[in-house]
Amino acid sequence: MTRFIDLTLNGISTGAVYAAVALALVLTWRATRIVNFAQGGMLMITTFIASSVISTSGSYWLGFAVALVCGLVLGAVVERALMRRVESGAPLNAVIVALGLLILLQALAGMIWGNTPRSFPPAFSIRGYDVGGTHVLFAPNDTFTVLVVIGVAAGLAALFRGTTIGLKMRAAAFQPEVARMLGVRVGRMFTLGWALAALVGSLAGLLVAPAVFVGPNQFDPILIFGFTAAVLGGLDSPVGAVVGGVALGLVLSYVSGYEGASLVTLAALVILIAVLMIRPGGLFSSTQERRV
């Protein structure tokens, strides 16, 4: 029973990280109908920057803040410089550009920081809480992770539902031409969507880095999990992304605990394929007409 509780707690905190990655993917999808396969590379770069800042300045929170700002800027730059050119073309063009960017970023990171994974400090203690003499598999740092992700999700919901800027972002995403005619600066909304997405992505990188270490390819599995979580949630809904992330975290934690850690990535891919085959609109989608 304690094992089940441990696995559940662990699933919630890893699920929170998947949820953050999923949120980043959902944001770019909502803004521009592009799945950003370069997201893993972008959050890898910002986490490397955080790592460098932390080791030179000695301050975790300075590195944390710098990474978030870099994420925001990187997202905006990638949208303006690269994606703007392929947004209106065939969807495949954007996929190829994003994959190309991922490879470029990984190569650059290898050249600058080397290919050996390096450790990354957690924000708070990773020693599990002491419950009745035993340490459970949930530490202050996990509490921090879960609270941050809940905060981000709530903040995004408030932005989209309660502000005019969120309203304009939604309008621009659904019907760019009509939105433009009504005076919405559609291009700016796209840039803002990417910047916000990359900000959330860099946050996910910081949260997961202590567990996976920092290296050019260390974040690849996280992106697969994040993508699976986003698809579970329907790719269009921030709430769905969070629920999908936590659900995936729990399932993978049980798989890892009861069946073996080597099966985790396989299980994630099986879930991804199953959802795409059975409910391509995500688990929470209502039946919608399909445009052919």
């Binding site: 005019t164 304009k168 939604r170 309008a171 659904f174 019907q175 939105a179 009504l182 005076g183 919405v184």
Partner: peptide, 16 residues
């Protein structure tokens, strides 16, 4: 705009 309420649709028109 689909998935924006009628009011939100009109609000987008008032952006200026």
């Amino acid at each position: 705009f689909p998935r924006l309420s009628a009011l939100e649709n009109v609000m987008v028109g008032a952006q200026r």
